[in-house]
């Protein structure tokens, strides 16, 4: 199929950017969205032009590297990552708008690549557990009730792609932060830092310049891993509890 692409081009972090129009032909419906962009980049390189920069890594939907807003939707029209989006979701002759994640906490580095290291700093603030080094402990030493294990696993699915921030009209990172807090706070392994984790991760989230949550629900709709919106309420519950328990 033949497609018209309108792609955000920006030479560097401080350079002004604009949408540029490209035409790509001979696109197979079985190609992934990123393979379609690879096709475009091959043509651009042959023509001696600068290829479009975009983040990608595993291309199997588990690393969270790909990050494109396609026709106004983070990761495009299907509920999956951009790398797992296939061209069969589009029709011949379509015009597709491709933009980077937009949030002041995620500055554009080049074209469609943004700096998501703010997420790393939120993780550094508390997204870990205190574990003794040495041999792995016996698996049955710390019993975990099944509902807690399921809850933890549901939140552990977050791959930190940042689609929640990109979709949120306030550029808020509440869904990401809540996934990480809930994942560890519900487990006995995460118990020693239960209060400091949520307080420090929320404080870092705010310091990184993410917006506040207005419960629009756009984040949970965009999330390729299906982190549910009530996660945010669960983190708020943890945050209020920590405020009662911890002296500053």
């Amino acid at each position: 199929m033949k497609l018209n692409l309108r792609v955000w081009r920006q030479r560097g972090a401080d350079a002004p950017g604009a949408m540029a129009t490209y035409e790509v032909d001979n696109i197979s419906a079985d190609m992934s969205f990123l393979e379609m962009l690879d096709t475009l980049n091959e043509e651009l390189i042959l023509r001696g032009e600068d290829p479009v920069a975009f983040d990608h890594d595993c291309r199997e939907g588990i690393c969270g590297a790909c990050s494109l807003v396609i026709n106004g939707d983070a990761h495009g029209p299907e509920r999956t990552t951009t790398c797992q989006l296939h061209m069969r979701s589009f029709a011949d002759g379509d015009t597709i708008d491709i933009e980077p994640w937009r949030a002041s906490a995620f500055p554009v580095i080049k074209d469609l690549v943004v700096d998501r290291s703010a997420f790393d700093r939120i993780i550094q603030a508390g997204g870990y557990i205190s574990a003794p080094t040495g041999a792995a402990p016996e698996a049955h030493a710390a019993p975990v009730p099944k509902p807690d294990a399921d809850f933890a696993f549901e939140h552990a699915e977050c791959i930190g792609c940042g689609a929640c921030v990109a979709a949120c009209p306030n550029g808020s990172a509440m869904l990401f932060t809540s996934a990480k807090v809930n994942h560890l706070n519900v487990l006995p392994q995460g118990a020693p830092e239960r209060e400091t984790r949520v307080l420090d991760m929320v404080a870092t989230m705010d310091a990184e310049g993410f917006g506040g949550c207005t419960l629009t629900g756009e984040c949970a709709t965009a999330c390729p891993k299906g982190i549910p919106l009530p996660s945010i309420a669960a983190m708020n519950r943890q945050w209020l509890r920590a405020n009662r328990k911890v002296r500053r």
Partner: peptide, 12 residues
């Protein structure tokens, strides 16, 4: 704060 966190709107 929210408006500052999303200074650039999406074209689409």
């Amino acid at each position: 704060r929210d408006i500052k966190a999303r200074p650039k709107k999406y074209v689409h």
